[in-house]
């Protein structure tokens, strides 16, 4: 059932377009830096000043640039559509009559949305790696701590970073899925979800509500940059994972409760 669901979601032109846009960002970034030169050391988005030093940093810079908006946007679209989209098409009633089982259907939606989170982040990193390797040197990688690791080690870290980013989107995916169970209008679910991302990001920047920061699902989104240190620092990443798990449990339970009791009128 998960495989069928995954095939349906990923066969959709909309989903493919989202992945294509995510693919284009690091490529665009790499070409821009190649043609115009990167920012001076310490300026511009994290890693962009190093993008021309090594293909691995092109990929990481791609992740930094897409992280605040493009990746969450695409996840909001997919998660917001998950249940509301089926309700809107009317296919939800036929899935329930099939019977797919309400809880099992929601689980399949959750798994595939999580899969999309990982796919989105991996997509960015792979595109960045390919573009970076073609345009820039691909020798040993100088870490943020100043040490040097072999190129393949660097590639491994970039891929690891993409998985970390993917997992750190799980909380958002759970929120989107929950919102999606509340309405029959997919665009509303998408808008609310992306609105919550923006709100969380704004609150994260307001020092007066610093007490809230550790609880915001966007708070540790940049923790993956610690993977570019030597040795890799996992402290914030674990904290992030724990926080995401909390969001998944809370909003997953909300979605589950709503899904089981929902009157399907569409």
């Amino acid at each position: 059932m998960w495989l069928v669901e995954a095939r349906t979601v990923f066969s959709r032109a909309r989903v493919r377009a989202l992945l294509a846009v995510l693919l284009a960002v690091p490529v665009f970034l790499a070409v821009a830096v190649y043609l115009a030169g990167g920012p001076r050391a310490g300026e511009g988005p994290t890693f962009l000043d190093r993008a021309s030093h090594n293909g691995v940093f092109t990929a990481l810079a791609g992740l930094v640039v897409t992280m605040p908006f493009f990746i969450p946007l695409s996840i909001s679209v997919v998660a917001g559509d998950a249940v509301a989209g089926e309700a809107n098409l009317g296919t939800l009633r036929y899935l329930l009559i099939r019977p797919a089982g309400r809880a099992r259907l929601l689980a399949a939606k959750g798994v595939v949305t999580a899969l999309f989170c990982l796919a989105a982040a991996v997509d960015v990193v792979l595109a960045g790696l390919v573009a970076g390797v073609i345009l820039f040197p691909h020798g040993p990688v100088v870490t943020l701590s100043g040490t040097t690791v072999p190129f393949l080690d660097g590639v491994g870290r970039a891929l690891l970073a993409s998985l970390v980013v993917g997992v750190s989107m799980f909380g958002l995916a759970a929120i989107g899925l929950f919102v999606s169970t509340l309405t029959d209008v997919p665009i509303a679910a998408m808008a609310v979800t992306i609105g919550l991302v923006i709100m969380s990001a704004i609150l994260d920047g307001v020092s007066q509500v610093a007490f809230l920061h550790p609880w915001l699902f966007t708070n540790y989104w940049t923790a993956f940059t610690d993977l570019a240190r030597d040795p890799m620092r996992w402290h914030l990443i674990w904290k992030d994972f724990l926080l995401q798990l909390g969001y998944v449990v809370v909003f997953g339970a909300g979605a589950w409760a709503r899904m089981l009791t929902r009157d399907v009128l569409a």
Binding site: T8, R12, A13, L89, G90, T91, R93, Y94
Partner: peptide, 14 residues
């Protein structure tokens, strides 16, 4: 039970 409820509903892109 086979059912047709309030018109058919399918995925337009498939």
């Amino acid at each position: 039970v086979g059912a047709l409820v309030e018109g058919p509903a399918f995925y337009p892109w498939m």
